[in-house]
Amino acid sequence: MEKQKLRYLQQLLYRTRDTVDEYVTEIRELEENAWEFYHHETSGFNRDELVGMLVLDGCFIIELFRKYSINGLSRESDTIFQSEQLRFALRRDLILLENQLPFSVLYYLFSKTRRPDEEGDLIPLALAFLERIMPNEKLTIVNNTQPEDLKHLLALVHASWGHQLSPAPNVPDEKWKFVNSATELKEAGVEFKILETRNVFDIRFIDGVLKIPRLCIGDYTEFPLRNLLAYEQCHLQRHQRKYVSDYIAFMNCLVNSPRDVQLLRHSKIIDSWVADDAAVYALLKDVYRFVLIAPRNFSYSQVCVKLNGHCRRRQNVWMANLRRNYFNSPWAFVSFLAACVLLLLTFIQTLFSVLSYTK
């Protein structure tokens, strides 16, 4: 990749007619913030090496985003664009928490090298390239997001993937508890349905129906989730919503065995591309090991309260048992109906016998 980075830098300098010394001089002015950004990780760097790394990697990243989205930039003979597998590996590298560059450096280099006729800005170009690695492949530009508000690319991905979840009013810690598994909820009369939306965090419980957006799970799913969780645990303030952590915690409650995965898969809530239900179960449990939630700010506390309230009502359990035992197939329903008719005829016969005896 070092050869590819140098090649992209040369192409950028040729197109802009700039010199690399200009970039180095400008980045040196941002160096102090960059040094603080890396703090403990800079023990093996001197400051000249840090500036060189920022210029080389930063130019490579912005050129990569441009070539992916902007027509007219040569890609036919580009090694990176001849291999989808290589682009996927680049996406993985770009959202690694330990690989992040300060967004201020990326934005400066993008602005410095931008042509007068160039359409698009850095944020939409970055999201267009990075969203292909995310479950459900949907990243939305957050209104009023300014480059100076962003720490790095992973922070941009986090804000874009989670911002659509409207925070529900907080429920006091003692008023809510985690819910049972999907299988147990079904036995208590809860119905599972897919919610047709690209916002994976939008989970609702309405009139006995738990509606959950589709979660696509493949071999790549664990990687972005781990890095987003690490970002939430290490860098978000206590008052900030941890969307991904809360979502994984809620799904972990629902999935307590491969049987729960099967139930959610049959409901089309889980779209699995891995080996089997046991593999999905193992993946979710493995990711959950990195989750710490704030009970006072848990995004699904109201959903938990409603679900647990539903499960405590005995009539819901009785109706669920009735449907499961007698209405789970046409033949079971016919048998139940025949038994009811037979019982009714027996009652009528008994009634007539009593009336005739009375007379």
Rank of each mutant, 00 (worst) to 15 (best):
C59E: 08
N71V: 09
R289W: 00
R17H: 10
R296H: 13
L345E: 13
F298H: 13
N99V: 10
H152A: 05
K151S: 15
S77H: 07
L96W: 04
E63H: 04
G44H: 13
S329N: 11
F129Y: 08
F110N: 14
W318F: 15
P172D: 06
V334H: 05
L64C: 11
E184H: 11
V255L: 12
D260I: 02
F201V: 10
V334T: 10
L165G: 00
S245I: 06
V274E: 11
D18G: 04
Q237P: 01
L344D: 15
R47P: 08
I70S: 08
Q4T: 12
E187L: 14
Q11T: 12
F336I: 02
N297T: 13
P147K: 04
A278P: 01
F333A: 10
E98P: 02
F205R: 09
E2K: 04
S245R: 12
A188H: 15
D202K: 15
D260G: 01
E137M: 04
R198P: 06
I123L: 15
D286F: 02
V209F: 05
L13F: 07
S83W: 00
R132H: 15
E184A: 14
R323A: 13
L343E: 07
Y326P: 02
Q85K: 07
D246A: 03
I212H: 04
R7M: 14
I348V: 11
Y357K: 10
Q146S: 07
L97T: 05
L229D: 09
L210I: 01
K211Q: 13
V209H: 05
V255G: 02
K268C: 08
R75Y: 01
D21F: 05
E184P: 00
H158S: 15
L229K: 13
K138N: 13
E22T: 15
D246L: 07
F45T: 02
S74T: 06
D48S: 06
T358K: 14
R75F: 01
N316V: 06
N321E: 14
A34Y: 10
L90A: 04
N143H: 11
V190Y: 07
E184L: 08
E131V: 13
V354A: 12
R7T: 12
E137V: 06
L210S: 03
P169D: 15
Q164S: 10
V200L: 15
Q237W: 09
L228G: 01
Q100L: 03
I80M: 04
